[in-house]
């Protein structure tokens, strides 16, 4: 059962990491425009070289 001493803190740390990541996404406004962002994900425009016109 000694392994619990490592595993329990590990699982908690991972959970906390996810929570921190979540707070970061929330702070950087990633939930403000869900509809728009699901489309932007498919956008090749920014990844491709800029068209010269």
């Amino acid at each position: 059962m000694d392994v619990l001493l490592i595993l329990v803190p590990c699982s908690l740390a991972l959970g906390l990491l996810a929570l921190v990541a979540f707070v970061w996404t929330l702070r950087s406004h990633q939930y403000d425009d869900l509809e728009g962002d699901q489309m932007r994900a498919l956008d090749e425009y920014e990844a491709a070289p800029a068209p010269k016109d």
């Binding site: 699982s11 908690l12 906390l16 403000d32």
Partner: peptide, 25 residues
């Protein structure tokens, strides 16, 4: 500004985090 429900979403996130860890235990 931005949507003002971020307080609720933060609570939801924390509740989700806590729920998952506690359920695991």
């Amino acid at each position: 500004g931005t949507a003002n429900d971020s307080g609720l979403v933060l609570r939801l996130g924390i509740a989700g985090f806590a729920m998952m860890n506690v359920t695991l235990l």
